[in-house]
Simulated scan of single mutants.
Amino acid sequence: MSLVDYIPGLNPDDEATKWNRRRSAKRAANYVILISMSIMYFFPIFWMAKAALQPRNELYDQTVYYLPQEITFENFRALLVDSQFLTFYANSIIVALGVVAVTIVTSTLAGYALTRVELPGKKRIAQTTIFSYMYPPILLVMPMFLLWYAVGMTNTYVGLILAQSALTVPFSIWLMWQFFQTVPISLEESAWMYGASRLRSFFGIALPMAKPGLIAVAIFAFAVSWNDFTMANILMQEPSMRTLPVGVLFFTESNAVDWGAILSASALIAVPPLLLVYFLQRYLLRGFRVAS
């Protein structure tokens, strides 16, 4: 006999029914919210892909077609053959991979040092790095341009990689600092007792255990570099050195916009970040969950 049997006027069946109804209503509301958000986020992607596969005359038609009346790859052919899109694509890949490498090396060493080496005010240093990330790129780009121009680093991969790394390294240091705090130092101390050097314990113990954090930093750095417009637009003046966000801008003219080329380019630009996040999402979520 349960407690509810001793309460006058309380029917256990009615209470169970009400609870089940509330649970069903809450679940239905959650599904409605999730479906609505999915439609809101994925509809622009669907519309972009649909428009990229449409003939150019349909793009300027006053009638709205939710599905293409005719599927064509003419927009992609013109983009890949008749423009410098592949050059822009190669530039973006080179710069993004360089930014990822610089960010991982810098943030990993700095984060490890802030958690393992006795430094005066190291906690304040680690917390200060996150505030430097709050400055918008527009405040940094002009001083960087003047400095880069003086030393001859404009229109170079190295110059743009270093400039974009200035946007990714501060947050990545804070992220790795948070993550290395979850790696027990007792494991490294045990290795030291058996004669392992600090360098060996770093590569053999701390770094493998920080793998989710490293992947989270890599995805973050890649995304920032891949989507950066401000730094690339100012530091890369040569047409052959433009990256994708800047290169796509030049598909617009003073009195016309080549929507077929822009939408096709947007579809191809979205492929690498989507694949990267799809295959590494569990590490990304784990890394940011630890940092939070």
Results as ranks from 00 to 15, higher is better:
209 M>A: 13
182 T>K: 01
199 L>N: 09
245 P>M: 08
197 S>V: 13
157 Y>D: 05
229 F>T: 07
238 E>H: 10
159 G>M: 08
180 F>A: 02
157 Y>N: 06
179 F>K: 03
188 E>K: 06
244 L>T: 07
177 W>G: 03
205 I>C: 12
209 M>D: 00
156 T>H: 03
225 S>H: 13
228 D>I: 10
207 L>Y: 01
212 P>R: 13
162 L>P: 07
170 P>E: 02
185 I>G: 13
160 L>G: 04
179 F>Y: 15
224 V>W: 11
168 T>P: 02
216 A>I: 05
154 T>S: 00
159 G>N: 11
219 I>D: 04
176 M>A: 07
228 D>V: 12
177 W>Y: 14
160 L>F: 06
162 L>G: 00
236 M>W: 07
240 S>A: 14
219 I>G: 02
181 Q>P: 05
167 L>G: 03
229 F>L: 14
188 E>G: 06
161 I>N: 11
215 I>C: 07
164 Q>T: 12
155 N>Q: 08
174 W>Y: 15
195 G>P: 01
197 S>A: 04
211 K>H: 10
210 A>G: 01
166 A>T: 13
217 V>N: 03
217 V>H: 01
216 A>L: 05
161 I>D: 09
196 A>H: 09
226 W>T: 09
187 L>M: 13
200 R>E: 12
237 Q>W: 09
167 L>V: 10
245 P>I: 05
157 Y>T: 04
214 L>W: 13
184 P>A: 02
179 F>N: 09
196 A>E: 09
198 R>P: 06
231 M>R: 00
178 Q>N: 15
197 S>L: 06
208 P>A: 15
217 V>A: 05
159 G>Q: 12
224 V>F: 03
175 L>N: 06
165 S>A: 15
204 G>N: 11
168 T>I: 11
